[in-house]
Amino acid sequence: MEGVMMRNGDAYGLAVRRPDGSIRAQRLPWFSLTRRAWLKKTFVRGFPILLETLVNGIQALNRSVEAAAQSGEEELSGWHLALSLGLALLMAIALFVVAPHLLSLVMLWLHLGGDVEGLSFHIWDGFFK
Rank of each mutant, 00 (worst) to 15 (best):
S104L: 01
T34G: 09
L76W: 03
A68V: 07
N56W: 02
R27V: 11
R27E: 13
V116N: 05
L102F: 13
P100A: 11
E74N: 12
R7N: 10
M107P: 02
V16Y: 07
K129L: 14
E73R: 15
S104D: 01
T34K: 08
I93M: 13
T53E: 11
K41V: 12
L33E: 02
V4L: 08
V116L: 08
K41L: 15
G3C: 10
H122M: 08
A60L: 07
E117G: 13
L105K: 05
R63N: 04
A82Y: 11
W30F: 07
F128S: 00
S22V: 05
K40L: 04
V4W: 05
G114Q: 04
Q70T: 11
S104M: 01
A82C: 08
W124S: 00
K129M: 14
S64F: 03
S84I: 11
F43I: 09
L110D: 04
L110P: 03
S84E: 09
V4D: 05
R36H: 12
H101W: 10
N62K: 11
R7L: 15
A68G: 07
V116E: 06
G46M: 02
R27C: 05
R18Y: 09
L39F: 12
D20F: 06
H111S: 15
D125E: 05
Y12A: 00
G21V: 00
V55Q: 02
L51P: 10
A92K: 03
E2Q: 11
L87P: 01
L85H: 13
L50V: 07
A68M: 14
E117R: 14
A69Q: 15
A25W: 06
G118V: 08
F121L: 04
V97I: 09
S84A: 15
D10T: 13
F96Y: 10
S104V: 00
A94P: 00
W124A: 04
H122Y: 08
L102Q: 11
G72Y: 01
P29L: 01
R35P: 03
Y12L: 00
V98D: 04
Q59Y: 08
I23F: 14
G113V: 06
L108I: 07
P29F: 02
W124D: 01
T42N: 07
E117N: 13
T53C: 05
M1R: 04
A99G: 05
E2D: 09
E75N: 06
G21Y: 02
A92Y: 08
E74G: 09
L119Y: 15
L108S: 11
N8Y: 11
M1C: 09
L103M: 14
E74H: 10
N56R: 00
I49N: 04
L89V: 12
H80C: 03
S32I: 01
Y12E: 00
L33V: 04
N56P: 03
F47H: 12
L89D: 02
A82P: 09
M91G: 13
T42I: 06
K41I: 09
S120Q: 00
G13I: 08
H101A: 13
H80Y: 04
M5L: 14
L51I: 14
F127V: 13
I93Q: 07
G46Y: 14
D125I: 00
V98L: 14
L87N: 03
A67I: 13
L61P: 01
